[in-house]
């Protein structure tokens, strides 16, 4: 009996294996073709002088040494870092919103939808919208400020306000997503923890500080990591709202600068080198975050 069934089961097995491999192969091939190959190629390109249409010429470390004397590279790196101020601000607001939404009251579904709307909207369309909202004369924001007697600045043309303006927009855009994740985290905090704390006489603030915050910490960590990675690649809103990199290069982000070098000024090799550096920076930052997070978890326990 077994001698008859064994090959049959094995064939079935083999077939399933093949099917499984085929399913696995699709993303793996996709990764090799569309991620790993371009990645390796851009590492190679970063050592060459290449204008994007010619054949690359090997130049060694030229592009990398050039970078450190390039004031616009440093400035755009700084701008990108500066605009990440929006990340903690966004987290605080979205946690507050999530706490509000977590209450049993009428209309929460409606508000959840409202706050989530920006997330699913096309970033290009939204950027154009905000460009108008930030218009100094008849923009929505300054009209609102005028109601309370404030003469608003011309947000996107002023060196002092262009970065805050972009931060405001980025916070608004990301709010719904963070809020939704926080909401899910809040709902999975066991009730009995609060009940026990209340019995011990903990105030609302103490409950929030010692139960809610630690319990949503994994979500906070996830959000910080993904926002830092996303924030270091900010591009579309900048390219649409300040197409020349803003007044005195104040809003040019690193990816915007890379793009401009590669496609406007025919320096694909140099642009690749900057992308490699950016990739390494993001990797290092993320690595540090993971290390810090591990330490934090230990201290909670």
């Amino acid at each position: 009996m077994s001698t008859i069934t064994r090959p049959r089961r094995s064939r079935l097995h083999r077939k399933e294996h093949q099917a499984a491999l085929a399913f696995v192969a699709i993303p793996v091939i996709g990764f090799l073709l569309f991620t790993l190959f371009p990645l390796l190629f851009s590492v190679y390109a970063s050592f060459t002088n290449w204008n994007g249409i010619s054949a690359p010429v090997f130049k060694g470390l030229d592009n990398y040494t050039k970078m450190f004397g390039d004031r616009y590279f440093l400035k755009s790196l700084w701008n990108t870092l500066y605009m990440m101020i929006g990340i903690p601000i966004g987290l605080v607001i979205s946690l507050a919103l999530a706490l509000a939404m977590n209450r049993k009251m009428r209309g929460t579904t409606f508000f959840r939808t409202v706050y989530y709307l920006p997330v699913i909207s096309s970033i290009a369309a939204v950027a154009i919208l905000w460009q108008w909202a930030f218009n100094g004369d008849f923009g929505l924001i300054n009209q609102g400020l005028a109601l309370v007697g404030i003469d608003g600045p011309n947000w996107l043309q002023d060196t002092a306000t262009v970065k805050p303006a972009l931060i405001i927009m980025a916070v608004w855009k990301g709010l719904g997503y963070s809020m939704l994740l926080y909401l899910a985290a809040l709902q999975s905090v066991p009730r009995y923890l609060y009940e026990a704390a209340a019995l011990d006489g903990a105030t609302a603030w103490q409950q929030f500080r010692h139960i809610t915050v630690p319990m949503v910490a994994p979500v906070t960590f996830f959000l910080i990591v993904t926002s830092v990675i996303g924030g270091s690649q900010i591009f579309v809103e900048i390219n649409i709202m300040t197409p020349t990199g803003g007044p005195e290069f104040e809003s040019a982000s690193i990816v915007w600068y890379i793009w401009q070098k590669a496609f406007d000024n025919l320096q694909m090799g140099y642009a690749s080198a900057m992308s490699v550096v950016l990739g390494l920076l993001v990797f290092v930052i993320t690595f540090i975050q993971f290390r810090l997070n591990r330490r934090n978890q230990f201290s909670i326990d």
Partner: peptide, 15 residues
Amino acid sequence: TFNGEWYDELFTNIQ
């Protein structure tokens, strides 16, 4: 010229 970077530079900080 081969690219316009040098030309744009004049206007970047002219404000």
